[in-house]
C-alpha cells in the first residue's frame, strides 16, 4: 500500500487535501459552492480543446478555468450570480462537446477528467501540482482577513475601502488555480467534494475562525487518506470514497450542531458561553 505508484498517490492526495481544505473553507463561508462546481467541470472543455489543437491540456484547463472565473466575476455584477454561473458552465460544456465532436478519441479522456486517475499519477506531475497548490494556499493566507470580513459584511468592508467585488473575483481566481492543478490528477469530482463536505463540517464544531480553518484541512486530509486506503483494498474508485466520506463529515457536523442545540439553551442555538 505504501510502495510504487501508491507513494505518488499519497503525496498528491495530501497536497490536494490541504488545498481543498484551505480553499473550501471560504467556498463554504461565501456560499460559492456553485462556482466551485462549475469552474472545475467547465474547465474540462479547455482540456478537450487543447487536445484538439495538440497543446498541453494543462494550458487549456488553465485558460478555461481562469476565463470562467473572470467571466463569472464580471457578469455577476450585472445579473443573478447563480444564473450567470449556470450559463457560464453550460457554455463551457457545450464548447467542450463541440471540441470532442471534432476529435476522434475522447471517451477515456472525459472519464478521467471528471473522475480523475489519482492512482495513475506519475512522479513528474507532483512538482507542478505542489507549486500551484502552494500558490493557492499563499493567496488565501494573504487575503485571509479580507475574505473573512467580505464574507460576513460586504457593505462594511466596502466602506473601509476593501472592494468586495474585487475580493470576490480574486477568490474565483483562487478556485480556478486550484482547479487547474487538481482536475488533471484527481478529477473535478474529487476536488469539488473536498471543498464542500469537510469545511462545512468544520464550522459546526467551533466558533473560532482559525480553529475551523485548521479543522477543515484536518478533515480533508483524513478523508483523502482513508479514501485512498479503502480504494486500494476494494479497487473501487477513489472519487467514490472521497465523496461519501465528505458527506459523512457534513452529516457529523450537522448532527453535532443538533445535539448541542438540544443540550444548550434553546434561545441561542450557536451560543458558546454557558457561563452567561
Amino acid at each position: 500500500m505504501f510502495s510504487g505508484f501508491m507513494v505518488n498517490a499519497w503525496e498528491i492526495g495530501t497536497i490536494v487535501a490541504v488545498v481543498g481544505g484551505v480553499v473550501g473553507f471560504f467556498v463554504v463561508l461565501r456560499g460559492a459552492a456553485f462556482p466551485a462546481h462549475a469552474i472545475p467541470n467547465g474547465a474540462f472543455a479547455g482540456a478537450a480543446g487543447a487536445n484538439l489543437l495538440g497543446v498541453n491540456p494543462l494550458i487549456g484547463l488553465g485558460v478555461f478555468s481562469l476565463g470562467a472565473a473572470l467571466g463569472i466575476g464580471r457578469l455577476t455584477r450585472r445579473g443573478r450570480a447563480d444564473a450567470v454561473t449556470a450559463l457560464a458552465l453550460v457554455m463551457m460544456l457545450a464548447l467542450g462537446a463541440a471540441f470532442l465532436s471534432q476529435s476522434t478519441e475522447y471517451e477515456p479522456e472525459i472519464f478521467s477528467l471528471l473522475f480523475g486517475e489519482i492512482l495513475g499519477v506519475s512522479r513528474g506531475q507532483i512538482v507542478p501540482v505542489a507549486v500551484l497548490g502552494a500558490v493557492c494556499v499563499l493567496f488565501v493566507g494573504v487575503l485571509y482577513r479580507r475574505l473573512l470580513l467580505t464574507s460576513l459584511a460586504p457593505e462594511i468592508a466596502a466602506a473601509q475601502g476593501l472592494r468586495p467585488e474585487l475580493v470576490d473575483t480574486a477568490f474565483l481566481v483562487v478556485i480556478a488555480c486550484a482547479t487547474t492543478m487538481t482536475v488533471p490528477v484527481v478529477g473535478a469530482l474529487l476536488i469539488f467534494t473536498l471543498m464542500i463536505g469537510p469545511p462545512a463540517a468544520a464550522r459546526c464544531f467551533t466558533d473560532r475562525a482559525e480553529i475551523a480553518f485548521a479543522l477543515s484541512v484536518a478533515f480533508a486530509l483524513v478523508t483523502v487518506w482513508v479514501a485512498l486506503a479503502c480504494s486500494y483494498v476494494s479497487d473501487w474508485p477513489v472519487g467514490f470514497y472521497v465523496s461519501v466520506f465528505s458527506a459523512a463529515w457534513f452529516a457529523a457536523g450537522r448532527g453535532y450542531l443538533a445535539w448541542r442545540r438540544h443540550t444548550s439553551a434553546p434561545s441561542r442555538p450557536w451560543g458558546s458561553s454557558p457561563d452567561v
Partner: peptide, 13 residues
C-alpha cells in the same frame, strides 16, 4: 447551496 453541493457530490461519487 452547501446542501445542494453535498448531495451533488455524493451523486457524482
Amino acid at each position: 447551496d452547501i446542501a445542494t453541493g453535498v448531495v451533488l457530490g455524493v451523486a457524482t461519487g
